[in-house]
Nucleic acid binder design. Structure first.
Lengths: 228, 228, 228, 228
DNA sequence: TAATAAACGAGACGGTACGTCGAGTCTTCCA
DNA sequence: TGGAAGACTCGACGTACCGTCTCGTTTATTA
């Protein structure tokens, strides 16, 4: 192959990884638009040219980090205990736990900024990170008893992820109460007696059941209901 | 007042506005992290010092733009025809229409980047722009017949806005189908486009088959309405 | 004037001089082609941009140094005691003394390199340094009793200077013996260290004396002549 | 021997020459301090390592070029017709002719710069190029009828060469008039009203024709004398 | 006829300096 | 005395070469 027969010294894997790690650290420490290639190269013990040889731009570098998985401590699996609502609530909690860590939140914000500035990063970000998270969430919704159809599962997953990202961007903490309300929104629609956020709207519970709609929904709702 | 009695030349309103407009244009044209104060000053016909006199940093400048309303063609009112689902669907459509314009999307993305990088901008962004949009949406949900409680209305509003922002960031178009699914998610919870998708919930079948969109929405709305 | 009415901060004379001095030192220390603008700026306590603002290239910087007189410890006056030969021999000795100092020789070599690489520097070098030296030497020759005509005085001056420069470039020391021979060449032409060296052509002696031109020359020649 | 019995591939003469030719071309095209080993290697179709294997530095490379004779189109023989003055004037003309060619002058200037920057190159330059030229000129002077003694012949030769080099460095053209004056200076010492530059010195004709031998030199001197 | 070893082209490596751009500060003049 | 113009220091940018170091290949010599 033309590839294998290429002459000249081969690319140093060690250096490649050192650069990516340095980039991740810089990203967490200074954010996307303060990224300094000089600093990254120095931290990686590499020459600047070596960085530029493989990554023509800041965004390409960040994109590679994404691809390499350095930036996705987010992709934890969605549990499956049979109760979709409870499962997603648990997953959401873990997710929020990650985002609450200063380093991770800085990283995600930096990544959001990178995605905002660069189409390439945005697409990579979507395809390699949030897309897969989203798909995992959507898959869990599809396999729930209510058999939520594909498009809706996607929309629901994006609503969850989008709301979390939004809170992160505007610096609003994702409190347990908020997560509850979010899950309620996705699982109960308008009938939000909420997973307990609502107080004293006992009637709400009825109405939800009264919906007479899905047994699946019912059970899911019931699952998170404090009082069966 | 001490203000009015201050000696010397008074601040030039003309210049102030020229700076803000130049900033907005730069933001739309180059994004947040490529903002150049030099360019802004030149475009505004102002000295750099004049810019720095009033705005100590890039983010303060952007924040002022936000405050001034240059960046919020987004705050269009939520209609109220009595049908909350239809109203919000309509509002979402308008919203998506704004975001589909290249200049506006560039602006919002730049603003998201600014918010990601700067706490100050993030808070301003929230308080002056998305917060009020969110509140308008939440308010509409609260006044709906289902009397969605406060926390849930907020969560639902953020789910809508967050999903839209997320789509913007990852460069996924907000198709009408997606908006439909989003509204369905918020209004119908688990029952998707129809209860029929659920396993063994006969009642749902009708609505799902009724499918389509407009009709579906109608029925979906009806379906989730606790009190017909 | 358009110049005097220019607005904005005025050029800092302090900085200008610091840059030129740093350049001179760099030139003596590292030579022309190892000049580092970074180092010059740092040594001068100036920003690189300030250097580049005023001097678009290394050669322009060096040329300015020349013009400013930093590089011409060479222009010592040619004495005039009435004996041109003795005067120029003395001047040549002083000249050689300068060139023997390591710092000065490094500077001149650097300058020669700069002149070799850049037309601009070459012309400046000629007009501001060697040209004036040459003219001083030529002037002394013209005012000698032999009234050497203009073009020849120039050629003789360039022969002297050129020979010195050549010795400097090829690292040959300018010994007193060499300086003697050089003066002999210029003042006695073919007759070398003395008319007697010629192969018995008495006429030659006549012609030289017969020139009638100079008793002065005669005397000057006699001065260094071993055999009167 | 140890040399001939060495194992392994032998040095490629083709490559060696290609490198030297590329160096010469680079030198003429860009000058000494802009020499790029990268470019030379590329132009020679050689790897950088091959260049470095044989020439540890830019100056060694240039020195080798000198040694190889690539840089000495200058060493043309000094004619010997019996009239030293006329011979050297002719040689000087040829010499000036070489220096007038842009490529050659660029090469010599580059070489002067190299000599200015590097002791090694300077010594090589002297020993292999100008030294031999100088010696040829000096030898012609010594065999002249006036039997100019060794030291003076050297000084005179260096005066000629130095003056030419100086003119080259400061970008002053070596006009025929200048060459005449130079020859006059060396051959006539103080009495020169200048050979060719002077008009109306009929006597000059005689001297030139008078050729002969010793008288020739004598007469040549006389020829330039305005006053017999 | 192998095995061995040096030189070869290619080109990636850690670095240094380049010349440019922008940030934010500090004058100087004008209105 | 506010504001334009613009020079200042500082630091990062992305590029060009430096001289060194693998790579895989080619060509001699030696076993």
């Amino acid at each position: 192959m033309s590839d294998s027969s290429r002459r000249g010294r081969t690319r140093s894997e060690t250096t490649r990884l050192a650069i990516l790690e340095a980039t991740r650290d810089e990203l967490a420490a200074h954010g996307y638009d303060k990224l300094s290639i000089d600093r990254i190269a120095a931290a990686a013990g590499a020459g600047k040219q070596t960085v530029y040889r493989w990554y023509p731009s800041k965004s390409a570098l960040v994109a590679e980090c994404v691809l390499e998985g350095y930036l996705s401590p987010l992709t934890n699996p969605v549990p499956d205990t049979g109760d979709a609502r409870r499962d997603l609530r648990a997953w959401l909690d873990t997710f929020a736990g990650h985002l609450a860590r200063p380093r991770t939140s800085a990283l995600i914000r930096a990544l959001a900024a990178a995605a905002a500035e660069s189409d390439d990063v945005a697409v990579r970000f979507y395809e390699d990170v949030t897309g897969s998270v989203e798909e995992a969430v959507a898959a869990r919704l599809r396999t729930a008893q209510d058999r939520r159809p594909g498009a809706m599962a996607t929309a629901a997953a994006e609503a969850l992820i989008g709301a979390m990202l939004y809170r992160l961007l505007v610096r609003q903490p994702a409190t347990p109460e908020f997560l509850d309300s979010l899950i309620d929104t996705v699982f109960s629609g308008t009938r939000g007696t909420g997973g307990g956020t609502d107080s004293g709207t006992g009637g709400g519970t009825d109405s939800s059941t009264g919906g007479g709609t899905g047994g699946g929904t019912e059970r899911a709702t019931a699952a998170t209901d404090p009082a069966p």
